[in-house]
Design a protein around this nucleic acid. Sequence first.
RNA 1: GCCCUCGUGGCGCAACUGGAUAGCGCGAGCGGCUUCUAUCCGCAAGGUUCCAGGUUCGAGUCCUGGCGAGGGCACCA
Length: 620
Amino acid sequence: MIRQESKSPKRSETTLRERVFAHVLKVVPKGAKFEVVVSPRPEMGHYATNIALRLAKEAGRPPLALAEMLAKKIAAGAPKGFFESVTSAAPGFVNFKLSAATIRAEFGRIVKAGEAYGRVNVGRGRTAIVEYASLNIARPFHVGYLRNIAIGDTLANLHDALGYKVIRWNYLGDWGTQFGKLIAAYKMWGKKEDVDANPIGSLLDLYVRFHDEAKYRTELEEIGRDEFRKLEAGDEENRKLWTWFKEESLKEFAVTLKKLNVKFDVDIGESFFEGEMKPVVDELTGKKIAVRSEGAMIVPLEQFGLPPAMVEKTGGGSLYLTRDLANLKYRVLTYAPAKILYIVGNEQSLHFEQVFKVASLLGLAPQAELMHVKFGLVFAERGAKFSTREGNIILLNAVFAKAERLARDIVEKKNRDLSPKEKDAVAKQVALGALKYVNLRENRNSDVIFDWDAMLDFSGDSGPYLQYTYARLRSIVRKSQITSTSAKGGSASGGKSQAPNPKDGVVDLKRLETEGEFAVIEKLAEFPEAVRAAGETYAPNHLANYLYELANAVNRFYESTPILNVKSQAPNPKHQTATSGEDDDNDIVRRDARLLLVRTAAGILKSGLALLGIEAPEKI
RNA sequence: GCCCUCGUGGCGCAACUGGAUAGCGCGAGCGGCUUCUAUCCGCAAGGUUCCAGGUUCGAGUCCUGGCGAGGGCACCA
């Protein structure tokens, strides 16, 4: 099933950074290349550009002098009051300080954008297929999959936010020689009762045993291949076994996928393309792209610096690569995708280089951008690979159970007023948040060594830290709805007083004036670009890092600034507004402004977490 | 041998794709809970960014050559 069309979110104008960029653009020669970035040195300004450094040589002027001149021109060209200052700094940067009014106005825009904030319509409704999970029938769900699924799910979510129509595809590994081996093993040693009782577990045992014995019984490999040939030829008994294995496996997968809170639109697997491969091979040979070599059919690729790609085995069996080609053809015909992302580990780099190369030789998908989104392997320990064949894997369920127990203990201590059921639910969300986040916060290319402590660390740069930050904010909002009633004593809109709603026009943004408040707003303003960068560079860690920074700014604000009890307190006013004395009214107005900030920040944390596939509990 | 990744404080990682004084988490040190949830916040310590050259106003990032780790390279997926 395909999720509904994205409701064509209007491109919410531009971000602050883009507007600063536009002001620079007005005063520089056409075609000049430069960047405007969030300043790495906040004391120098909010944003900075390297334009003078870029133009200095061409202009034949020292960069700093040029920067100074440009600073003046930019300041003069911008609407009055947009910048607080535009200055130059060695070696030739131009720094922009935004005025308090600009920042407050930006906050107003963010509030107004509401839930749509962060959606950017660069995809314009084009289709993106994201292939991830790609579970293998009769193989257990081990921790390695977690990385794949966390990354794939996030990229799918991000593309949705970018305005693509996203198709989430769990490309099942349900075909190939491994099933011949499995069938052979079952025929030799398998018992129906065992499989019924524990399908994947017992099938895994058979698979492991097969490989153990194959080490000294070399004929087994050939027996396995033969059973697969029979399966492909439609042998009734093998067919039946295969179907049975698949059904049992899918049942188990469904449970785990539900636990992980991921859903797929398509779970068509390799077996689906069984009948589609012959035409592909025929086309390849017909066009003389593929040739016979040592009995097999290969596509020579040495002219592209690649080893030959085998598309048909000696004797006519199909291969993984052949199926990927057939699949690609099918996808292009069915969905006409603008891109296809293959979320698959690093170790298959060569495979995808070959697939893409052969596809381009065939002209299979001329319109589609094909992308192997690779990621580093998860190791058991230094130099020790997890191997299903060797049976040394850590099951996802085991990790999940351990994380859940830990989370449950914490919730137990913190929130005694929750019902046991609620506690369980929160514990699940926190555990899952922790597990997903560790897989998203780092550059996906690095290999990682599985580490229980890292998985279960709920402090610092972690999923639970973000969830906790959210829960604290929501707690304030909840409490405000009680105290607000007493403070205002039955206000305008009938009995129940709400936390401030911007549409009422009651919130005076001028009351936002502390450093902490501004820091949060400035961070909020970066959200759409964090989404965009993460999506366009296929780097979930950009978004994860951004959310961590946002949470950090929020927590600092939380620690330093009273929100519900503002009583005669305006710590470190950074931008003085004309204050006509601190009276109770002012306190209430200030409180409402801060509450609006709290609500908005909470909302964005929640959207951001949702993009990472992580739920945000209201209480922890 | 060829190809793909990766190499940054004790450990795990960032660095907006060539910009300013290389940031953060964990750990170890100090401080902050009768106050909106301490899974938090603050202060302080910790660096020759694997090595050697090169490119340029400017290099963790780019190029060349090394070194080290992991993965892949014909009938597995």
